[in-house]
Structures are given as structure tokens and as C-alpha cells.
Design a protein around this nucleic acid. Structure first.
Lengths: 150, 150
DNA sequence: CGATATATGTTCGCTACCAAACTAAATGTC
DNA sequence: GACATTTAGTTTGGTAGCGAACATATATCG
């Protein structure tokens, strides 16, 4: 009975995620940008001004997390957060000039890391891996649970 | 050119990790325990008092992270942190009586989630997934980089 | 119209992760 | 023995994540 779970896809998913995050942070640090902050700029640079609300599903994060990311980007002067004129609840996020200029200088960390991590793998192997991860994720996310027995 | 990376194993690794963490947090919340805190108790309950230092490799985390986890467990009264008599730098972690009692009441969240997430999969598919994740992780972790071109 | 419900964001308090800079103790080296 | 180096942990300040509770604004319903 020796920690079988350290060899499971779940454990390796965690390690891969942390390794990816770590490298992305190193790449972005010179630009004073975190990984999730990068995704927000990515969206704004490629699709123009976007309601803050939309980022919840785009980034798959909760409201408090998004609030903090937005706050950081506003503080750094890379985006503006304005109230929608029609619906005063909604906030619209737009790139500032500084933000647009920064985006022009940024490398694409995702493409870079994909190349390192997955280059040379069979297409089929990658598909199997995605299938396992995707299914496991869906099962966990949809599992109804009223507390574990106890 | 539509965000191919959202379908990559890296993206799914992140989602699976977050889904796992989220469920583990829900399971452990009634016991006032976080996932990483659980792993520390797991080690102490199964292998007895352990130098704090050893947890760095066991949990694959950095010193500040460990410091904070230990701090939380001491604050909650589940472990003791004492100085080694031979080497005053080292700290030894031991379960308190409260901690031991708590451990006796805890479910095993890992076994529980493994069952939900991976049940019914081909052994071969799981091995392929692990192979992909493990290789990708190693490549990212060993990649030497003196900053991306820029 | 008014009360209630829903949608959008923020705040608070927590876990968990890191790098950089620090203290203190032990070890090596000259 | 003195000084430099290494090792163990902490502190500080940051990102990223969450639930619970809150304020506001819009929408719905009676």
C-alpha cells in the first residue's frame, strides 16, 4: 500500500500544471505580468474590448479571482475598466495604449511551451491523454456529492 | 488560428488539477484542512515524526510554501514543530494528540477521487496519459532557458 | 407600482504556490 | 580560530485560486 496515487494521471496533471505555470511565470516576469493576466490581454488584443463578465467562462475562474486579476492589470496601467452605459452593473475592459504597446513586445509563451513539452509525440498518444484528462475532469466536475460518508 | 492550446494536454492538465483540488477542498473543509495540509498529516500518521526539510522533496514544494503550511497546522493544533537537539537549524514535525485523533476521523479523499475520475478506463490508456504528462513535465522542468529570445 | 429575484462586481478571509532577501546554525577551509 | 560557504527556515510581497457575504443595478412578477 505505497501511495499508488503518486503515479496516477491526477498527480501528473498537477505536476505538469505547476511546471507550465512556473515556466510561464519566468517568461512573463520581465514584463511584470502573471499567466492569467496574460490571458486577459490576449483576449483584449485579439478580440477587442470585452465585458468583464465574459472572462468568467473564457478563463473558467470565479468572480473573486477575476476581480483581483483585473485590479492588478488596472493598477499596472495595462487595461481600463469602465461601466457599461446601458447596464450600470457591467464593466467593460479595454486595452490602454500602454497595454497595447506591451502586447506588441510580448513573446507567445504558450506556443513556446507547447513546442518544448509535446514535440515529437504521436498524435494518437496526445489524443488519448486529452481524452483521459477531459473525461476525468468532467466526472469530477459533475459529481454530485452531499459530503463524503464520514 | 483559433487558440489551439485550449485543447492541448497542458490545458486539460490544468483543468483536471483544479477540479481535483476543488473536490478535495470540499471534502476536507468540514475538518478545517487544506489539501497540502492533508498530505503533511498523511506522512506523519503513516511514517511518524519527520524533519520539516524532508517535506520539500516529498511534496515537491518550495520552502516558503512549506513554512506557511506548517504554520497553519501548528496554529490549528494538529502538529508540533520542535528543534532538533543535534542540529538546531532543523525542525522536527510530529502529530499532536488532536492531530492523531483528527486523522482517525478523516476519509481518504485521494482514493475516493481516483475511483470517480479514472474508474473504467483501460489500463493502457491511463499509461499513455501518464507517459505524456510525465515526459512533458520533465521536458519543461529540465529546459534550460536564458530568457525567451525577445 | 412595489416587492422580490437575478445578475454583476467587490470585499474578506483563507489555501497554496513562488522568488528574493533575510537570520541563524553548522560546516569547510585556510 | 577566523572567515567563508552551505543549509534550514522565515519573512515579505506577489499571483492565482476559492466560498461566503455584501452592495448595486436590472429584471420579473403579482
Amino acid at each position: 500500500m505505497e501511495k499508488p496515487y503518486l503515479k496516477s494521471p491526477g498527480a501528473w496533471a498537477k505536476r505538469l500544471h505547476l511546471a507550465s505555470r512556473s515556466m510561464m511565470e519566468r517568461i512573463l516576469r520581465p514584463y511584470d505580468l502573471g499567466p492569467t493576466q496574460w490571458y486577459v490581454l490576449y483576449q483584449l488584443a485579439n478580440n477587442g474590448p470585452t465585458p468583464q463578465r465574459d472572462f468568467l467562462s473564457l478563463l473558467q475562474i470565479e468572480k473573486p479571482t477575476l476581480s483581483e486579476v483585473v485590479r492588478a492589470l488596472v493598477r499596472k496601467g495595462f487595461i481600463n475598466q469602465t461601466s457599461d452605459t446601458n447596464d450600470q452593473r457591467q464593466r467593460l475592459l479595454t486595452l490602454t495604449d500602454t497595454g497595447r504597446q506591451l502586447w506588441g513586445e510580448l513573446p507567445d509563451p504558450i506556443a513556446f511551451m507547447q513546442e518544448i513539452a509535446f514535440q515529437g509525440f504521436d498524435k494518437e498518444m496526445l489524443e488519448v491523454a486529452v481524452e483521459v484528462l477531459k473525461t476525468a475532469t468532467e466526472r469530477l466536475n459533475t459529481y454530485k456529492f452531499d459530503g463524503v460518508e464520514k
